[in-house]
Design a protein around this nucleic acid. Sequence first.
DNA 1: TGAAGGTGTCCCGCCAAACGGAACGATGTT
DNA 2: AACATCGTTCCGTTTGGCGGGACACCTTCA
Lengths: 251, 251
Amino acid sequence: MINPDAPQTGVRAVDRALDILLCFSRSETGLSLSEIAREVGLHKSTVHRLLTSMLSKGFVRKQPGTDKYVLGWTILELIHNVYHSDELTTAVLPVMTRLRDATSETVSLYIRSGTERIRIQAVESMEPVRNVATIGKTYPLYVGASGKVLLAYADAETLEQVLADPSIPADFSREDLLTQLENIRKDGYAISVQERDSGAAALAAPIFGRHRFVAALSVSGPVTRFTQSKMSEYIEVVRESAALITKLLSH
Amino acid sequence: MINPDAPQTGVRAVDRALDILLCFSRSETGLSLSEIAREVGLHKSTVHRLLTSMLSKGFVRKQPGTDKYVLGWTILELIHNVYHSDELTTAVLPVMTRLRDATSETVSLYIRSGTERIRIQAVESMEPVRNVATIGKTYPLYVGASGKVLLAYADAETLEQVLADPSIPADFSREDLLTQLENIRKDGYAISVQERDSGAAALAAPIFGRHRFVAALSVSGPVTRFTQSKMSEYIEVVRESAALITKLLSH
DNA sequence: TGAAGGTGTCCCGCCAAACGGAACGATGTT
DNA sequence: AACATCGTTCCGTTTGGCGGGACACCTTCA
């Protein structure tokens, strides 16, 4: 049961249907009807009826092999309206650009995708020597400031999968990572120096949506420009920018 | 009124709510309550009630300036589950890879974003001389095979905006483009030879989702390898691949 | 083999709650 | 000032959603 005290506003059936959709944003592997019913605290038959509506509209679908429900392709049809909506370009991008101007380093926006992270937006530094940011590119989660931010707010299952990743170097300290993740959750930012790329340093801070952690905002550049004093200055502006975007996202 | 004959299955309130959400995938600028009510053929008060539910869950939100409704940030939280879901990598990517192997040229998947197009997925050719495809990169709509496909299935407003684009070269024939778009809709594919890049040629075909046109699939490479006979061969395989993905998306 | 527990699906009687007409205040337009 | 159109709220009617229960189908124990 997610929400014991119902908001008691609007249409109940719709509230429940949307609750079901939100369940999917938490589980990556798909959900069975009974799991959903347990999660939202409703009778199986009720959930079944709601799901058939969403099924016929393509908002959810059944995985071919298993009988589990997953999000449907219709969501894809909504994406470019959200993802490239006016607000994301007229609200988030300016914040990123301002952050770039304040630090004169490359600014990136990452979301987690399974056990990887993907850069969904970037504003590059104007310096001749700079971090080149390709939108859409993916990186591991266990290295880099934004990777660790994404990991710090990921579910336990994802963390486990990442730690079990065979491509992690042998000398990588998992204990060290776990304490770092705790510090990130406590402090609200992450630092990485020469982790992903030798010669590069980065700072990152979490961005929260309406219901949960959404993305990581990072500033990255050549390690030579990230002096101790610059670093502490950047920490402030990155956290401010992330907080501003968080505020924008919860409108 | 979108759907005069209701499917009469599942929960009506949910069906209506999802219909409202689908309205947004068509209009890029946001919709007022009355517009939505007109579109789905319901009473204003009914739409208002449904919208308050979706508003409280963050599925829609009101634009700060105007009173228009637009899709909310909660949709973002669903995206990475769909966009990078197992199926998109285990279903669409293999089709793209097979197409790459059949043509030994670079294969790209584009969606339209306003008056541009963005490459959301790519499988590169293995040839030493090849079209290098960067995921996330954007291109204009009025040149290139996939650009024209995206334009052929875009709404009239977008087409108008694109034709009014001041960055279009002076010698560009808009009449020619319009007849090309008609042919694309008729034939189901587009060809471009040395349009976007000199020395490059491309073929593209439309991919349809459950409710509407979604994306364009393209094969591109050096024009020297796109002989007349190769061209007609590629047209077939591109259309087949696009049709296969369309089938997958409607599950 | 059969009992036990887990699925997903379907049916149906009851009554809560969704529907839409109507009215309201606020804006903007002729 | 009259008019049109907007978003919002209220309320009586009755419709359609609710969930208990039944069912068939699994797998897993005894």
